[in-house]
Design a binder for these strands. Structure first.
Lengths: 334, 334
DNA sequence: CTGTTAGCGCCTTCAA
DNA sequence: TTGAAGGCGCTAACAG
């Protein structure tokens, strides 16, 4: 491996000058610079980044931790992060925890050890004390998911409670009164909030909350399917189902069809997220479109501020979702 | 930041001993080790990985480069890589090129600069000379995609030509003679091979290849849709369509339906890949299931051999796909 | 079994 | 505008 001293020798200058040519070319005389650049070219010199990182305690790399690479919800956020990062000269690397909390902490160590300049977490399913501690000492931003006490860590997210309220109200406005909910894992704030929004909407419209209409899914297609079969088997089955994710909504629809019923004719189904497939699916899903790209982009902007040391307050940035009315919810019942 | 010398001082030993406790604990007397570990704990010492990497020229990290994080084909391979890597004490980081060739080279620099111990590429859409050169000097494995001259870089893939032949023959055996093909981007070997397999199957069964049945897609849903509309508008439209990816097959089916026709009743459609959604889609896709997990796992195994220096020959590992017969191809026409 | 010591390659004062 | 020199924190001979 050719090193800086080789270049220096060939160009008949000191290593300091070579370093300057690389870092602050303006401070070097034109002629000297030329000599050095020629030597670099001739030797095909590439600086040893490991040495540089070590010396500078900086890597120009940020780490994005996602809980499940197979879930497109996360991938779409990553695209936004990636866009903004690349624009600012940062390289993005991804860590995939496969839902194992422990692995998230492995990645947090990366950050602590300065192997990356900053970190964006797409999940809050980690040891919270550790998270808060790390977030106070190192550049870290949480996206999409958040903590109960949302001001402890800088966060970018949507208002799940409000958005969930909106979509439930949409069903109510369509004339539905018997509305069931398939929640996501309730150890996640966002899923609890979606549940709350649903309940609030019902209450505000004087609709009695029927507890066997509250089912618990786990974000999987299968759980949407299974819970729906249970709902359909009820004495007094619902006329509408609000699933806390599009994938579960698809499972729900599949279950409805398996019973010879039709969506939305017999049962209306709505989802949440608006992933790519929701448009392709038949019937196309009515759902709450999250601004994935913007979430990622905004998170990266905040992270960059933290990295360059603007001592920003912890903040909670709320982005707007948009209701997409498609086929699966049908039209006014009245 | 507490450093090794702080620990050494507190434990009243040399830094070398502290280092040994961390690297080769067996070579240290039990009692000394205990002292050191206590000091480490008391100071909450964490080794500076940047310094260590620099010193060792080793990171225990491997980089996986994928062309498009939104495409689940790649994500599923990553899961296999991840599994095997974690088992062997390697951390996986992902690089996403968003189909920009240039960015792939950025990631190759990571490898050259020893920022990672090895690299798995999920795309061969890069400068080939550079790829071959890097592959000869550093641990690198190509998966799924491959080079025309497949022995230049160690590769794990399926036999696209054979698998494509199989699925085409399946349609022929069902009685179809008018079979169209929607290819992927033909600058990729795997897409050219899928096209060849299709043509070979037709020829072997004495079916004339009709050139307006050969259409060119780009792996997107939309291209499957558009090409199918064109096929249906033909004077003599096909009775079956073989799309080179599931996503395009879904687009094709959507197009067929948009014309008031039914799949498979009026037109049979088959795909290639067997992504998660293919089972959910209606009609469920008949497709060629790639062994994604095994591909990733095998690639990581080979990479590890390269990293630890077993001078393996460049090899081309071929894995078996499996035909999944579901609804979209229908049954025997005869 | 443990300590001494000499760097790894780069960057950055400081002095010229 | 340039060079000399020290050191980032860790590891791995080599001695003892």
């Amino acid at each position: 491996m050719t090193k800086m001293s080789d270049v220096a020798k060939l160009a008949k200058v000191s290593t300091a000058t070579v370093s300057r040519v690389l870092q602050k070319p303006d401070t070097v005389k034109e002629e000297t610079k030329k000599k050095v650049l020629e030597a670099i070219k001739k030797l095909d010199y590439q600086p040893n980044i490991l040495a540089r990182n070590f010396r500078r305690l900086e890597t120009k790399t940020i780490l994005v931790v996602m809980p499940n690479i197979l879930n497109n919800v996360f991938s779409e956020i990553v695209v936004g992060i990636d866009y903004e990062a690349t624009k600012n000269g940062y390289q993005v690397i991804l860590g995939n925890t496969m839902l194992e909390e422990q692995r998230a902490h492995g990645f947090m160590n990366h950050l602590k050890q300065k192997q990356v300049d900053g970190m964006i977490l797409l999940t809050a399913r980690v040891d919270i004390d550790d998270l808060v501690k790390v977030a106070n000492e190192y550049p870290l931003v949480l996206v999409s998911d958040y903590l109960e006490e949302s001001d402890l860590v800088t966060t970018v997210a949507i208002n799940n409670m409000k958005d969930s309220y909106t979509i439930t109200e949409h069903l109510i406005n369509l004339g539905h009164k018997k509305i069931a909910h398939i929640s996501g894992p309730l150890d996640m704030s966002i899923c609890r909030d979606r549940l709350s929004g649903y309940q609030d909407a019902l209450m505000d419209h004087d609709i009695h909350i029927q507890y066997d209409y509250l089912t618990k899914g786990d974000y999987s297609f299968q759980s949407g399917y299974d819970n729906t079969l249970n709902l359909l088997a009820l004495q007094n089955p619902p006329t509408a189902i609000f699933a806390a994710s599009d994938i579960m909504a698809m499972g729900a629809i599949k279950a409805v069809k398996s019973k010879g019923l039709q969506v939305p004719h017999d049962i209306a189904v709505v989802g949440f997220d608006d992933v790519e497939f929701s448009k392709i699916f038949e019937p196309a899903l009515t759902t709450m479109a999250q601004p994935f790209f913007d979430m990622g982009k905004t998170a990266m902007q905040l992270l960059k501020q933290k990295i360059v040391g603007e001592q920003v307050q912890n903040q909670f940035i709320e982005l707007k979702s948009e209701l997409k009315t498609r086929e699966s919810c049908g039209f006014n019942l009245k």
